[in-house]
C-alpha cells in the first residue's frame, strides 16, 4: 500500500505491506540508526519521534502513518553529537545499542522542557540499556539538559 511519510523533513513515498511496522520500513530504507531489540513493545530501543513525540516504531504499522512526520537519530545530528560527547565524558558509552533511542527521548525531553532529575528518570522509564549504564547515562543527560539538582 502506498504511504507518504515525511522522514527527517524529507517526503518519502513507500510501498509497504499492510502489516509492516515502521521499524522494518525504516531499516529497509537505510535508517539503520533505529535498532530492533525486543520487537515486542517493551525495550524502547526502536524509539523514533512521530510528530515530535517519542513512539515505539516496532508497534506502529507504516500504512497508518500517511502524512505524518517521523524523526530518526539521523534527523537530529546536533543532539546526537552533543549527547555522544557527554556520554564519552561520563563513561556512559558502552555497546552503544541504545544510544540512538536515548538521544531521541532526550531530544523530546528538551523540547518538552523537562528540568529536574525526577522528570528525566520518569521519561527514561522503560528504556533498557543492555549494559546497565543507567547512572552514567543519567549524569550525561542531566548535563545535556542543564539540570543541576
Amino acid at each position: 500500500m502506498k504511504t507518504d511519510i515525511r522522514i527527517n523533513g524529507q517526503l518519502k513515498s513507500f510501498n509497504v505491506k499492510t502489516d509492516e511496522t515502521l521499524l522494518d520500513t525504516l531499516r529497509r530504507h537505510g535508517y539503520v540508526g533505529v535498532k530492533k531489540g525486543c520487537d515486542a513493545s517493551t525495550c524502547c530501543v526502536c524509539a523514533v519521534l512521530l510528530d515530535d513525540k517519542p513512539v515505539l516504531s516496532c508497534s506502529l504499522l507504516t500504512v497508518r502513518l500517511e502524512g505524518r512526520h517521523v524523526t530518526t537519530i539521523e534527523g537530529i545530528p546536533e543532539t546526537a553529537s552533543r549527547l555522544s560527547a557527554l556520554f564519552g565524558d561520563e563513561g556512559a558509552d558502552q555497546c552503544g545499542f541504545c544510544n540512538p533511542s536515548v538521544a531521541i527521548v532526550v531530544h523530546a525531553m528538551a523540547r518538552e522542557g523537562i528540568d529536574d532529575e525526577n522528570g528525566i528518570r520518569h521519561y527514561l522509564g522503560g528504556h533498557l540499556c543492555r549494559c546497565s549504564g543507567y547512572q552514567a547515562q543519567l549524569l550525561a543527560i542531566k548535563k545535556f539538559l542543564g539540570v543541576t539538582s
Binding site: S41, T42, K53, S59, A108, G125
Partner: peptide
Amino acid sequence: TQRIMSVALRNV
C-alpha cells in the same frame, strides 16, 4: 497511567 511501561509506549 505513568507507571505503565514507557512514555514511548503510552504515546502509541
